[in-house]
Write a protein that binds this DNA or RNA. Structure first.
Lengths: 206, 206
DNA sequence: CAAATATACTGAACACTGTTTATTAAATCC
DNA sequence: GGATTTAATAAACAGTGTTCAGTATATTTG
C-alpha cells in the first residue's frame, strides 16, 4: 500500500512549506525578522516541529542561500558566449552589483553571513554555487587574457581582483559607508568605479 | 564645595569603565558575546544602570567603533609624507588589510555593522573617522594622478576603486568565501591581488 | 480485533537577548 | 532635621534558538 509514499510526500511538502515561509519572512521582514518561532507560528506548528525537518537555523539559512544563488542566476541570463570575454566580465559585474543592491538580505546570506557557511563546514559540504560563479569568472579572465595578449596577468588573481571590487562596492553601498563619505548618485558612482577598474585592467570597456 | 565636581568625575569614571568592559568582552568573546547584561554583570551594576550612561546598545557600539579607528591609525603610523603617493597608497592598502584581518570584530563594527551607523543617523552625527580615512586616500590619489600624468583618472573614483577592492578582499577573507573557492595561502593571494590592482592602475608598484 | 510499536507533534523548560518603568535607597541642599 | 534631587535597581515585557520528556495518533504485528 502507498501509505509510506504518501507520508513521505507529506513530509516533503511540510519541509517545502517551512522553506517557502522562511523565504517570505526574509523578503518581508529581513534577516533580523526571520526567526524559527515566526516560521512555526505561520505554518501553524510548534517551534519544536521545525527541528524535525531541519537540524537548526543555520541549515534553513543555508537552503535560503541556495535560493539566492538561483535568483542571482536570473540576473545573468543575458550574458551569452557570443560576447567578448571583456564584455562578459563587464556584464557579469553589472549584474552582480544590481543583484546585490536589489536583494540585500539574499546577498548577505550568500556572501557575508557566517551562518550558512557554518552549516557547510559542519556537514563537510561544498559551496558549489559560489564556486561555479567564481570558476565562470576565472574562465572569462583566461579568455580575456588570451584574446588581449595580457600575458603578465594571472587569471585567478584577476578574478579575485574583479570579485573583490564588486563585492566591496556592494557592501560599502549596502552598509551605507559609501553614501556617508561621498556625495553623488550611488548608482553613477558605482558604474564609474566599475568602468574605471575595467579600463585600468584592459585599457578598454566592452 | 567640590561635591558636584566629584560626582561628575565619578559618573565619567563609571561610563569609562562600562566602555572598557565592553571593549574587553568584544576582544574576548566577539560581537555575538557582547551583551548589555554581560557588561552589567562584570561592572557589578544592574542592566538598567547601563541605560543611565548610554542611550542604547548602538551608542556603545558606536563608541567602540571610534576605538577601532584609533587602533587602525596605529597600523598606519609608518606611512610618511616622504613616500611617493603610489607607495603611500600601497602601504595604506597593506595596513588596511592587515588591520582588518587581525581585528575582525573591530573591522565589522567600523565597516560592516549597521548598528554604529544607525546611531550616527539617529543623532544626526557624522562619520568623521571614516571620512578622514577616505579623504586621506583621495588626497593621495590626487597626488598620484598629478605626479604620474594620469589625467584620465578621477581622484574620487580612483579612491573608491581602491577602497572597494581592499574592503572586498578583507570581507571575502573574513567571511571565508575566499578560502572555500580558491586554494593557496590567503595572505599571498591577497598581496598578489593588491599588487595586481596597483600595477593595473599605475603600471608600477612602489 | 487487540496489543505493541512506530511516527508526528508539542508544552514546557533552559538560558539567553535589549529595553522600560515604577520603586527604593542614599546623598545633598536648604 | 526635613525636603528634594540623584542614582540604582527589581521586575516585567517581548522576544530569541534549542532540547527533551511526554502524548496522541496511526500503522503494523500477533
Amino acid at each position: 500500500m502507498g501509505t509510506a509514499e504518501r507520508k513521505e510526500r507529506e513530509k516533503a511538502e511540510l519541509k517545502e512549506l517551512i522553506l517557502k515561509t522562511a523565504k517570505d519572512i526574509l523578503v518581508k521582514n529581513g534577516q533580523d525578522g526571520l526567526s524559527i518561532r515566526k516560521i512555526a507560528s505561520i505554518v501553524e506548528y510548534s517551534p519544536a516541529t521545525i527541528y524535525l525537518y531541519f537540524k537548526d537555523k543555520d541549515e534553513i539559512l543555508h537552503e535560503l542561500m541556495e535560493v539566492g544563488f538561483k535568483m542571482m542566476g536570473s540576473y545573468m541570463k543575458h550574458i551569452s558566449p557570443d560576447m567578448s570575454p571583456i564584455e562578459r566580465i563587464h556584464k557579469t559585474g553589472e549584474a552582480y552589483i544590481k543583484f546585490g543592491l536589489e536583494n540585500k538580505d539574499w546577498y548577505d546570506l550568500m556572501f557575508n553571513s557566517e551562518k550558512p557557511m557554518k552549516h557547510i563546514f559542519d556537514c563537510g559540504a561544498e559551496w558549489n554555487e559560489g564556486m561555479n560563479m567564481f570558476n565562470f569568472l576565472v574562465l572569462n579572465c583566461e579568455q580575456a587574457i588570451k584574446e588581449n595578449n595580457l600575458t603578465n596577468l594571472e587569471p585567478q588573481i584577476l578574478a579575485l581582483q574583479l570579485w573583490s571590487t564588486v563585492h566591496g562596492l556592494v557592501n560599502l553601498t549596502l552598509s551605507e559607508r559609501m553614501c556617508i563619505v561621498v556625495e553623488g548618485e550611488p548608482n553613477e558612482l558605482i558604474n564609474k568605479t566599475l568602468t574605471s577598474m575595467l579600463v585600468s585592467i584592459f585599457n578598454q570597456v566592452k
